[in-house]
């Protein structure tokens, strides 16, 4: 599967408090959460983002709170992929569980610039910066994550395991 979109670029240590501030956690509705996504570090994000766009950031993306509302807000805002040097572990797990595609690729995270048009192929792990002409290869998903994705996410995987009781 391939995605293509324009890039929103952020720095290292983008925390879950700026992805979705706690004052908005009184709702878990994706349609409500997306209205406030990134508002504390990038107030214009919600107005500019278009379906399919790609988020690119540095190290430790999604650090902080365990709120699943963070990957839900990013996904609901239309972002098709987050590329980062690496991800904080709870965010990594949550993104997989809610079906927000993520890729770890330090080279792409460093080279891709805000506004670039980028295409990524989940099957091959190849990321192409169409604007600059550069290509990068992301670390492939570990086998166990592929299994969860094959099952259609953690819910379906668990349903299968517990016999859908």
């Amino acid at each position: 599967m391939k995605v293509k979109g324009n890039v929103f670029k952020y720095k290292d240590n983008v925390d879950t408090d700026v992805i979705i501030p706690a004052r908005h956690l009184t709702s878990a509705d994706p349609e409500q959460l997306k209205l406030h996504c990134m508002e504390d570090i990038d107030p214009s994000f919600v107005n500019k983002v278009q379906t399919g766009d790609i988020m690119v950031a540095g190290k430790n993306f999604g650090c902080g709170s365990s709120r699943e509302h963070a990957p839900i807000a990013i996904k609901a805002s239309g972002i098709s992929l987050v590329i980062a040097s690496d991800f904080a572990r709870i965010f990594y797990r949550n993104a997989i569980n809610v079906g927000l595609p993520i890729m770890e690729c330090p080279e792409a995270a460093a080279a891709i610039k805000a506004g670039d048009e980028v295409e990524a192929d989940f099957d091959t792990g190849i990321i192409t910066d169409i604007t600059s002409g550069e290509t990068f290869t992301a670390k492939p998903f570990p086998e166990f994550i592929k299994k969860i994705i094959d099952c259609g996410g953690l819910v379906a995987y668990t349903k299968e395991k517990t016999g859908g009781k």
Partner: peptide, 19 residues
Amino acid sequence: GVGSTDLACAMASGSTWFK
């Protein structure tokens, strides 16, 4: 710590995966 989906699955099954 985990997220809400992991919590839901753990409440149902009493187990979860770890690396």
